[in-house]
Design a protein around this nucleic acid. Structure first.
Length: 263
DNA sequence: AACACGACCTGGTAGC
DNA sequence: TGCTACCAGGTCGTGT
């Protein structure tokens, strides 16, 4: 489920709740989430370690543990990390949990169970962070110029830009008035600048909205990311020109767009 | 190299 | 009400 803004909100909350916690014991419920690592190995290696720092890279969460090891969590579609007061009350969707010495627990809840959790000594390479200072017009234009893929697929390629998923790609393209099918390397400099700015803006708004939503108990399952202007609006009128929003499959995913004002 | 597609899972819901 | 079919904020491996 989560894209960059939701993962960022989770990380900010974990810094207030999980950071500083000392893991007493680990419990991997869904055994395959640690593959190719053995679940027992992850449980044993995590035990006794303090959570020193929480870091986000794209949609990935890294909990840096004492001793130079990091817990790498990818929520995929429905995963969520949060600290609960009592591990006995963990939900049915629990993929894993880590009990702290003080009785609280770090919970990895994931209704679909596609999320992953591994221990790593070294962080892998990711694409550029779209909310970082390095995400300049020049950097964006250079990356786009190297890709002949449809611009929506380009935006979602995690090795190029990290953290953009199906919703935010659609929203940014709609706001910029850019067709999701246009090859990335055939956009003018002016349109790339607009797209870069809309991308950054929609992600910032998403973070703000997600942070507010996560402040409430319950987490993100009940929270709309924010006002969606095109995603999931098939058949409804475009807010800009009134034409019907369309949905087509692109790269195996649904792409929502306005065929009239996205060019 | 650049696609499309199925697999991995569970749950919600639209439609009959 | 109950059943079915389809859909889902992601990624990876395989095949064309």
């Amino acid at each position: 489920m989560p894209e960059l803004p939701e993962v960022e909100a989770v990380c900010r909350k974990l810094r207030r709740t999980a950071q500083g916690g000392v893991i007493a014991s680990g419990h991997i419920v869904r055994k395959r989430i640690t593959a190719p690592q053995a679940p027992e190995e992850v449980e044993a290696q995590a035990a006794g370690r303090r959570i020193e720092r929480v870091e986000r890279r794209g949609k990935n969460i890294f909990l840096h543990l004492a001793g130079g090891l990091a817990m790498h969590v990818h929520p995929r579609m429905t995963g969520n990390l949060e600290v609960i007061q009592d591990a006995r009350f963990r939900p049915h969707s629990t993929s894993a949990w880590f009990e702290f010495e003080d009785g609280r627990a770090l919970l990895f809840a994931d209704s679909r169970g596609l999320g992953t959790l591994r221990l790593t000594g070294e962080l892998p390479e990711f694409g550029i962070e779209p909310l970082s200072r390095g995400f300049t017009h020049a950097a964006f234009a250079r990356l786009a110029g190297e890709s002949s893929a449809p611009v929506k697929l380009f935006l979602m390629d995690q090795s190029k830009i990290a953290g953009i998923g199906n919703i935010y790609a659609a929203e940014a393209l709609w706001r910029a008035g850019v067709s999701p099918f246009r090859p990335a390397d055939r956009l003018s400099a002016a349109r790339l600048l607009t797209l870069r700015n809309e991308l950054a803006a929609v992600l910032r708004e998403g973070v703000k909205s997600a942070v507010a939503a996560y402040a409430k108990p319950g987490g993100f399952n009940e929270a709309e990311p924010f006002q969606l202007l095109v995603y999931d609006r098939e058949g409804e009128p475009c807010f800009r020109c009134g034409a019907k929003i369309r949905r087509v499959a692109q790269g195996g995913r649904s792409t929502y767009y306005c065929g009239r004002c996205q060019r």
